[in-house]
Amino acid sequence: MSVDIDITGLRRERITVVPSPLAELGMALHALAEPGHHPGLQGWATTVIAGLDSHLADRMCEADFLWRTTFSDLFLPCAGIPGRDALPGATLGEELDLQDKLSDEQFVDAALEFTCAPPYSAPGPAALTDAGTRRRALELAAARGPQQLRFTERLLADPPRIRAWLRQFLQDCDEAFFADTWSRVRHQLAADARHKTDLLRRRGLAEALASVSSAVMVDEAAGRITVDKLDKNHTATIDGGLLLVPTSLGWPHLMVLHRYGWQPVLHYPVSSPELAAPPSVEQLTLRMTALSHPVRMRMCRSLARSAFTTGELAQVHGMTAPEISRHLSALKKAGLLTTRRRGRYVLHQLDVTVVARLGSDFLEGILR
């Protein structure tokens, strides 16, 4: 399960690392809508929400589907500009001008991405021009409640009006709280962009992307970047450039914009509370599966307290040595055990630090 980016023939100078104030505003709105996704930002979110006037707070709920699930590609409009090589603007105003350059079809399809499931990584009929797609969009919106339906009806009936509404809303968010947030994080993002650019120039793409996340892998011989995600397999093709956009508010999300016809973008967090590299989705699945078995859960209770031999575990749990060995093998394969030899005996013990990390690892795995 992954998102792949085909980089065959991509020249180094077409890879750009650059911050985006609009993308960071999108992450800010997401963190405010889903503070549970971002435990490290709960203090910031509480302060911002407490300071919002009621009118802006109501407007924030009106179209929160654009940023609650993750966030809409509308927050990276440079990727949709024809030519597929545009860059984010230096200011929020410049980025909103780029958003204005998207066609109505691009705007509507991006706005309906998470709630009405139009085609994403392949060409397909647009909701504005195809009656069947439009009807399905309204049906799916209705299933999500009257507020979603009203907004979708307005969006499909009068895209320019909704576009103007969204631009004014984002400007009001900037005035209310984001300008201050951006002034504090933009230097960190700029420094990270310079660091990644320097790595790219001096040490190559593989090392630069390894510094982004251990979930991003490069096979330059095959011309492919692979991002480990709990998702269906998707492949994006680069006709223009590749954008890497850092975010200070984004952990645990590692997002890949791979919309058909748009420039691919890797939107990555510059820091996380982790002390070690996260496991792959496959490794996380192995760990969750291993721990879900009731016998292995009981064994873990013993192994968390002390080291045991296979024979000792068999005696404690009233099972045969081969049965215990099979369960130990599953736990070891999942990377949950440490083993050491004492004379002719092999002692097994639960790696408590790995198990303790599963909460944040699971969160990152499903939200990556």
Rank of each mutant, 00 (worst) to 15 (best):
I324C: 06
L363T: 00
F362T: 05
G343Y: 08
R340C: 05
S360Q: 06
L336H: 14
K333S: 14
V354Q: 11
L347E: 09
T338N: 11
Q349I: 03
S360D: 13
S360K: 07
Y345W: 06
R340S: 14
V352L: 12
D361A: 07
D351K: 10
L331R: 12
L363M: 01
L336M: 12
S325G: 09
R326C: 02
L347K: 10
V355I: 08
V354W: 03
A356C: 01
L358N: 11
L347A: 04
V346A: 04
G335A: 08
V352A: 12
V355K: 05
I324F: 06
F362H: 05
K332D: 15
T338D: 12
V352E: 13
T338W: 03
R342H: 08
Q349Y: 03
D361Y: 13
Y345V: 00
D351M: 03
S360A: 10
V352C: 05
R344S: 12
S325T: 15
R340F: 14
L350A: 02
R357W: 02
L331E: 08
V346R: 15
G343C: 03
D351T: 05
L363V: 00
Q349C: 03
I324K: 10
T338S: 13
R344I: 01
L358E: 10
T353R: 13
I324Y: 12
F362L: 07
V346E: 05
R340L: 08
L363Y: 01
G343W: 07
Y345E: 11
Y345M: 06
F362I: 00
D361I: 01
H348L: 01
S360M: 09
E364K: 10
I324L: 05
R357Q: 14
G343M: 01
A330W: 13
H348I: 00
S325C: 07
D351C: 08
F362A: 09
H348R: 08
K332R: 15
R357I: 01
T353H: 13
L336P: 06
A356I: 00
L331Q: 13
L347C: 03
R344E: 07
V352Q: 13
A356F: 02
K332F: 04
G343L: 05
V352M: 10
K333P: 00
T353Q: 14
R340P: 00
T353I: 04
R341T: 12
R326H: 10
G359S: 04
G365Y: 02
